[in-house]
Design a binder for these strands. Sequence first.
RNA 1: GUCCCCAUCGUCUAGUCCGGCCAAGGACACCGCCCUUUCACGGCGGCGACGCCGGUUCAAAUCCGGCUGGGGACGCCA
Length: 467
Amino acid sequence: MRGIVTRFAPSPTGYLHIGGARTALFNWLFARRHGGTFILRIEDTDQERSTPESVVAILEGMTWLGMTWDEGPYYQTERRELYREEAKRLLAEGKAYRCVCTPEELDRRREAARAKGEKPRYDRRCRDLPPSGAEGKPFVVRFKAPLSGTTIVRDLLRGDIAYENEELDDLVLLRSDGSPTYNFVVVVDDATMGITHVLRGDDHLNNTPKQVLLYEALGTLLPRFGHFPLIHGMEGGKLSKRQDDVSVMAYRDRGFLPEAMVNYLVRLGWGHGDQEIFSVEELTRIFSLESVGKSPSRFDPEKLLHLNAHYIKTGNPERLAALLVPFLGKRGFDVEPSPWLVKAVRTFQERSRTLEEMAESSEFYFLCKDPDPKAAEKFFTPEMAPVFEEIAREFADLPDFTPAAMEPVLHRVAEKTGSKLGKVAQPMRVALTGGTVSPGIFEVMDVLGRDEVIRRLSRASRRIRGA
RNA sequence: GUCCCCAUCGUCUAGUCCGGCCAAGGACACCGCCCUUUCACGGCGGCGACGCCGGUUCAAAUCCGGCUGGGGACGCCA
């Protein structure tokens, strides 16, 4: 007995998206919370659309978010014999039948049913066909679902949901090429893998009664089910790749931290009083299905940004520096993590919402940018040239080039010209960073270092003097 | 169309199970003010919701029914 066993079973037809990631997260947290087992299973029964690249992308996304699986990844393509055996058994037991209707015919009938305002589903015309009737023709294997009665789905989040069996359909178990379909493999796999809790999106709720019937036909124990609401895009409705940013890895590439992503995702549909910030470690202790909401939630990039800013602000600067390196590289700065870089990072932790923003705004640390034209016009006035020169001279004579030592210099110079610190600080900022927005001027100088500061001040004064 | 699910600020949510503690709390966003060498951070304040109608009850965001609205599913996709 392994206690609780959950699984995440994505189909490898694209990258790991926001919705899938949250499904995985809930399953993972639930297993961790109860000391259970979390299984990763790749549902690659759709030969047409499954790709090995997608598998890699999904594993990469899981790993980035820190979700470790205890078993798998299992691949359904490697378990085909099992499904075939089970289908054969159902056929032999009269719980399934061969259907020779062609996809085209089915399409036509579905359309006709829809036109008449009926529920489009299989009319079961092959259900009682003698085995000889399928002779020589391609066939699919269908499940012989009961025609009457009621099937109850016991859902952990929603309670009991009753379905009239006459509403249900005769599912295709095996396609005409012999490959199994989703609704079949999911039941066979969940049963044979001993999954105790099937936690998945709401979009599977209506499949569940059919699956329950299948479990019964197979003679296996039923897992517990829990269907949580879908995540909607900002426009409402299912997240769409078209109008919503849904790839998890795209967020990494834009400078989001995995802990921010996890924190955001878990709060979409789950709450714990008024608390907003959760570490992964804490989540694995307190996550509970009872606190998962029943109504759908919208994906709000603004709030994710806010959380990311929080984790950057409070994050370990050494780690952030290392994570920042590739973003700097993208902008053409070939830097290595170093104590100096860490110091630079510290000056931006409180003013960056993403690593990408940090890389962008910290560019001036790596090259002496030309001043922004408007800023230069406003702050590089003729009287600033001698001020810059004097400050440079005094800096050169300072025994230690520390913020504590620099500060009196600026105050003295400011007083001499009868102005406040701001009058000097802002032009200095333009001279040193090229713009009017930056970390505190003393912090900036501390990172830049004495030589570079003097160099940039001289450059600015030369510029003012028109040299 | 049929079936299923859902319904508290613009958004994420607390409260709903066990009606009174809720003239509904927190967070994001937005708007002010304060702090301040810029920008941020931070602090303070503001804006802002129980979808509607009925019922039960001394009392309903909380229980019941209907309506409306939103979403999902109806594949040889998963």
